[in-house]
Amino acid sequence: MTTLTVGGQGFRPYDVVVGRGLLARAGERIAPLAKGRTVIVSDETVAAIHGQALSASLEAAGVRTQTITVPAGEASKSFAQLERVLDRLLEIGLDRKDVVVALGGGVVGDLAGLAAALYMRGIDFVQVPTTLLAQVDSSVGGKTAIDTPRGKNLVGAFHQPRLVLADIDVLATLPDKQLRSGWAEVLKHGLICDAAFFDWLAGDGAGGACGDPAALERAVVRSVEIKSAVVSEDEKEAGRRALLNLGHTFGHAVEAELGFEKAALAHGEAVALGCCLAFRYSAREGLCPEADARRVEAVIAAAGLPTRLDQAGTFDADRLLALMAGDKKAEGGALTLILARGIGQAFVAKGVDASSVRAFLIEEGAAG
Rank of each mutant, 00 (worst) to 15 (best):
residue 4 L to M: 14
residue 6 V to M: 06
residue 9 Q to V: 13
residue 23 L to C: 07
residue 24 A to V: 15
residue 24 A to E: 15
residue 28 E to Y: 06
residue 35 K to V: 10
residue 35 K to Y: 04
residue 35 K to H: 14
residue 46 V to D: 00
residue 54 L to T: 09
residue 58 L to K: 05
residue 61 A to M: 02
residue 61 A to R: 03
residue 61 A to W: 01
residue 65 T to S: 14
residue 67 T to D: 03
residue 67 T to H: 04
residue 74 E to V: 01
residue 75 A to F: 02
residue 82 L to H: 06
residue 85 V to I: 13
residue 85 V to T: 11
residue 87 D to M: 09
residue 88 R to Y: 07
residue 91 E to G: 14
residue 92 I to V: 15
residue 93 G to N: 10
residue 96 R to Q: 07
residue 106 G to S: 08
residue 109 G to F: 05
residue 119 Y to V: 09
residue 120 M to G: 01
residue 120 M to D: 10
residue 123 I to A: 14
residue 125 F to K: 07
residue 125 F to D: 06
residue 126 V to L: 13
residue 129 P to S: 11
residue 130 T to W: 11
residue 131 T to N: 11
residue 134 A to T: 09
residue 137 D to M: 12
residue 138 S to I: 06
residue 139 S to N: 02
residue 140 V to R: 05
residue 140 V to I: 13
residue 142 G to S: 08
residue 143 K to F: 07
residue 144 T to V: 12
residue 145 A to T: 03
residue 149 P to R: 08
residue 150 R to N: 04
residue 150 R to Y: 06
residue 151 G to Y: 01
residue 152 K to H: 02
residue 154 L to D: 04
residue 155 V to L: 14
residue 156 G to D: 06
residue 156 G to W: 01
residue 168 I to A: 07
residue 170 V to E: 08
residue 171 L to P: 00
residue 175 P to Q: 03
residue 176 D to K: 12
residue 181 S to M: 05
residue 184 A to N: 02
residue 187 L to R: 02
residue 195 A to F: 03
residue 205 G to P: 12
residue 205 G to D: 12
residue 207 G to Y: 12
residue 209 A to V: 13
residue 211 G to I: 12
residue 217 E to G: 13
residue 220 V to M: 03
residue 228 S to A: 15
residue 229 A to F: 03
residue 230 V to E: 10
residue 234 D to P: 07
residue 235 E to Q: 15
residue 235 E to R: 12
residue 235 E to D: 14
residue 240 R to L: 15
residue 251 G to D: 03
residue 256 A to D: 00
residue 260 F to C: 03
residue 260 F to V: 04
residue 261 E to H: 09
residue 262 K to I: 01
residue 262 K to C: 00
residue 268 G to P: 07
residue 272 A to Y: 00
residue 276 C to W: 00
residue 278 A to G: 07
residue 280 R to G: 00
residue 282 S to T: 08
residue 287 L to V: 13
residue 287 L to H: 06
residue 289 P to G: 07
residue 292 D to R: 04
residue 293 A to L: 01
residue 293 A to W: 01
residue 293 A to S: 08
residue 305 L to Y: 07
residue 310 D to E: 15
residue 313 G to W: 13
residue 314 T to W: 03
residue 320 L to H: 08
residue 322 A to E: 14
residue 325 A to D: 00
residue 330 A to W: 04
residue 330 A to Q: 10
residue 335 L to H: 13
residue 335 L to T: 11
residue 339 L to S: 05
residue 339 L to W: 03
residue 344 G to H: 12
residue 344 G to F: 11
residue 348 V to S: 09
residue 350 K to A: 12
residue 354 A to P: 01
residue 355 S to W: 00
residue 365 G to P: 02
residue 365 G to H: 01
